[in-house]
């Protein structure tokens, strides 16, 4: 285990690297992109990116896979019905909690 002074150096490297990745495109690219293909690409980035981050990681985000699957299913159904974001996030949590509790009782 490194001492605190060394940990500070690690933190500095991590922070600067992460910040540079975030800041460079924002500062350098100031004009509006006109190219239709690039515009389309950037439109699809959030959907592709958030989906790849969710699946399969979501299945390992709770105490066990079953409660995660049920929480995810609840979120999916609410999403298909276009429920708003806070409601979807909250009910997914509730579904996980209830499932975990039931599993505790079932032993």
């Amino acid at each position: 285990m490194p001492e605190n002074k060394n940990i500070m150096i690690y933190l500095l490297i991590m922070a600067l690297t992460t910040y540079a990745i975030r800041a460079i495109p924002l500062v350098l690219l100031r004009r509006e992109i006109k190219n239709i293909y690039v515009k389309r690409f950037l439109y699809y980035v959030p959907f592709a990116c958030l989906t790849a981050m969710t699946v399969p990681s979501v299945f390992f985000s709770t105490a066990n896979i079953l409660s995660a699957v049920i929480g995810f299913a609840v979120a999916m159904v609410l999403g298909l019905f276009r429920a708003n974001l806070p409601l979807t996030a909250t009910l997914a949590c509730v579904a996980v909690y209830v499932t975990d509790r039931i599993m505790d009782l079932a032993g």
């Binding site: 958030l50 609410l78 999403g79």
Partner: peptide
Amino acid sequence: FGMFVSIVVP
């Protein structure tokens, strides 16, 4: 993840 679903699916 519930948030992500809510951003992508609707």
